[in-house]
Write a protein that binds this DNA or RNA. Structure first.
Lengths: 239, 239
DNA sequence: AAATATTTTTAGACAAAACTAAAAGATTGT
DNA sequence: ACAATCTTTTAGTTTTGTCTAAAAATATTT
């Protein structure tokens, strides 16, 4: 696996994030995502095309090649492992990890990352609940669903919080809800779409707590059902 | 504390390593240390001068300012903490840590480093035995080591000669080695444990001389590594 | 389908950090 | 002291990644 510059890596990562299933990404879209100018994007796309990391036809948009996806998954793996490290070992809060991981992810040493992975105990989700690709680029695709769609009394585990504002984090901290918290929806109120849930923080032996949360908050909490087995997707093709 | 580019940081670190007591560093010396060309050094020196990180007069060499030393100690702190982490937590061997730490040291986040320090239990020496500056840039004075234990190409300053017989002094005088002489071990010969060293007397601008010394003589010469600042107070003043 | 608007690309410039070749300054030997 | 030598600096290029302004291609509106 070759090495790429910090700038190249940032472009690759951004394309990966923007391109869903088989969508092509646009110049303007990418420029906006990276807070840069369309002309700079075009320049970089030409460069990445010669490196065979993406398919690109002028004026027609672009999307990552197999190789490009493999590279992207490598970067995402590094990013998320560092986020996990910062959060779990250095006690960084959710909103602090991203910025630092953004720098650490560009340190290129396969051995460093594989050893870090081992040191952390091969975690499968980062502090935001996003899955961490393994050393072969395989990634678990947990079926994330919003708790507004979770059926009553079905146990699930918090794996993602979409809005990462400090306000929501403060609220979740107060209610003792984290990534990994096990919860069940006990009751839904049609009047205001608020819901009563019971939750038990990871590791805590304490009795699950019962409380009510607003629709606004509920919409931001995503879980994986503990009953559905995790599915491996996309990355596995490229082993 | 401002942020500096990776390149600027590498120059600052290299100057710190080359400059012992109050020695001025030369353009050629620094170019050699960094495997770059003298012209590139001059360019960077002009830049670092405008940033007030060093004192520089064209054709007369340069040395770090107080601020420059503070920056250097920050970089060395990051480097050594990462080396300790890699060695202690990720089971890297001593010869593997340097290259990776060389990259990690440029990640600029004060909080990251202070938290890492805490996580590691505030270690005071890196895996090579070099002292780690604390968060204020304070550093334990380096121990005296015998040149038989000095690693190759590491600049050090003669600080002690254990046997004070007239015979040894005559020999040292002839070879122009004094307390304060800057030297490096260039080669060690396993056959008779003799070693080739290069030495430059304090104050002399002349080219360092290369010569071979016996094991018997080597055992009597003690040095302090210039990797650690000889004046601890430097860092302290600026808290 | 023509006119207008939007998106994308090209062309040319700039900053950082490196290099080569040539000029300028310092050092050394006789 | 002065010529020869070595060191350092200057001047002019190169590469990477960015930008602005203008041109070209595509999309939209009437």
């Amino acid at each position: 696996m070759l090495n790429y510059s910090t700038s190249e890596e940032n472009y690759i990562k951004a394309i990966f994030h923007l391109q869903g299933e088989a969508t092509t990404v646009t110049t303007n879209g990418l420029a906006h995502e990276l807070s840069t100018k369309p002309a700079s994007v075009t320049d970089m796309m030409k460069k990445l095309k010669t490196k065979k990391l993406l398919h690109y036809r002028p004026y027609r948009g672009f999307h990552l090649s197999q190789e490009g996806k493999k590279v992207a998954l490598g970067i995402i793996r590094r990013h998320r492992l560092w986020e996990y490290f910062l959060s779990e070992k250095l006690q960084f809060t959710w909103d602090e990890v991203h910025e630092v991981a953004e720098q650490l992810e560009h340190v290129s040493s396969k051995k460093l990352i594989d050893k870090l992975d081992e040191f952390l105990g091969f975690p499968r989700f980062d502090p935001h609940g996003d899955p961490i690709p393994d050393r072969h680029g395989r990634i678990l695709s947990s079926r994330q669903i919003c708790i507004t769609e979770l059926s009553l009394n079905k146990t699930a585990i918090v794996c993602n919080v979409s809005d990462q504002s400090s306000e929501i984090l403060e609220l979740l901290k107060h209610k003792n809800i984290n990534i990994g918290t096990k919860l069940e929806v006990k009751k839904k109120f049609d009047f205001d779409n608020s819901m009563e849930i019971s939750a038990a923080s990871r590791g805590k032996i304490r009795q699950p707590q019962l409380f009510t949360i607003s629709e606004q908050l509920a919409k931001n909490i995503f879980v994986t059902s503990t009953l559905t087995p995790l599915r491996v997707e996309e990355g596995k093709k490229n082993i």
